[in-house]
Design a protein around this nucleic acid. Sequence first.
DNA 1: CGCAGCCTTGACCATTATCAACGCTGGTGG
DNA 2: CCACCAGCGTTGATAATGGTCAAGGCTGCG
Lengths: 245, 245
Amino acid sequence: MLELKTLPEGCGSRRRTTACDTCGARPFSVCASLDDAELARLDAMAERQTLAVGDVLLREGDPASHVFNITGGSVRVYKLLPDGRRQITGFLYAGDFLGLTTGDRYAFSAEAMEAGSICRFRKADYRRLIQETPALEAILLDRANHELAAAQTQMLLLGRKTALERVATFLTDLPGADRMRPTSTGVLHLPMTRGEMADYLGLTIETVSRVMTRLKTEGVIRLTSLSDLTILRPQRLQALAGGEG
Amino acid sequence: MLELKTLPEGCGSRRRTTACDTCGARPFSVCASLDDAELARLDAMAERQTLAVGDVLLREGDPASHVFNITGGSVRVYKLLPDGRRQITGFLYAGDFLGLTTGDRYAFSAEAMEAGSICRFRKADYRRLIQETPALEAILLDRANHELAAAQTQMLLLGRKTALERVATFLTDLPGADRMRPTSTGVLHLPMTRGEMADYLGLTIETVSRVMTRLKTEGVIRLTSLSDLTILRPQRLQALAGGEG
DNA sequence: CGCAGCCTTGACCATTATCAACGCTGGTGG
DNA sequence: CCACCAGCGTTGATAATGGTCAAGGCTGCG
């Protein structure tokens, strides 16, 4: 009952590069510590599937029959309250894992946000796999720990940050928004709607929109389209985010 | 960079029983799948330490030098914003792990809430340990997955639930508040202050207090002291919690 | 061209935070 | 033994952040 994100390669930042198309379709290909034989074995066991926008990978409460490795596109993971309130707990991209769980039911739902592809393994196969491939278990543990740290950071955001701080944090953490190297082209892409941002940040669409407008008029960001933006004043944005570290 | 809670033994509920005093002092003793020889080896490596109320186990940003196994008492794990706002991300009890992390710095702080004891292992020892004890890695992975699911549930609470729903959820999840078997004695213990509840639920002390008063006057709970309560109408409480499933 | 879906903006409202005062309890020291 | 004090909790009055409701604009597609 968890989803796992690719570990950042270098420092501790949450940078994410889109998977290269050549290796993206191969399951576990992001796991550098697996050798070719191991990868081939995984490959053989994988059941491939392509994803259209909005496709449901799994639904909270379903029997946890499969483990997923995302090989392309992007996925939103969320939980719902009975009345429809939604909390998006994370966004997943190529290389990420989904659906590991001790329990026999999934504890969340997952849908494709952008078209892509996945490889899935039956739970039993996965269990066998992991026993035969100790390196894999170590990788998964590492990722789980990383994901847990990210979850705690998100709890801090949801429990204690203002709307402005939440949006600023979100933009700061956007793939490509690495403040260390001040972004090559400068243009970032938002792969999600305002509604998804809102449900991820614990806000309403209107509040997200208002904050974005405010950041725009204050010259902190520029929106070239609804889903493409430039961070004009990264320092300022960082400060608004509430400088957690 | 994570903390790990004891897995519930039976179904999927979050029940927690206080560790028995006889085995509580032994590290990893909760791990049923470890044999005696393995436990003895762990035992030999452990560095014991007792905890007084308020003792700091580790601080966010410190070099991640040790891994902890809590053998008694209770611990709060939290993150801070520069201006002092605090989000408690979890409470740990006997049997729980703390301080596993891929990174070289802790991503959160941890303090003793009630007096108790811990065993700690140097990071290098821990790494060796885990390589020599595959069963341990499996246990930790399971726990990490469980903890991740709990984190997602907490994100739903922090992002989307009202104050009333948050407090009701908290009380519902209290150790001993298992709605399946409607509590033997009926008396639950709150090991934390209102301030800690507030910082865990993303509310202020005043709001927590007001909601508790409301639940009291509505006959849903009874407070025998500040830290001991009875749930008079578990069904109602459950409904107020927002019935996540 | 028209419609659907998404976004923005405005007016107003509600929930929860903030500020402040007071009560209870337990520990300490006279 | 009592009085005082500190820390915690409760309660009330007021404020503010963010939510709700509503209207209108933009964009892309059929």
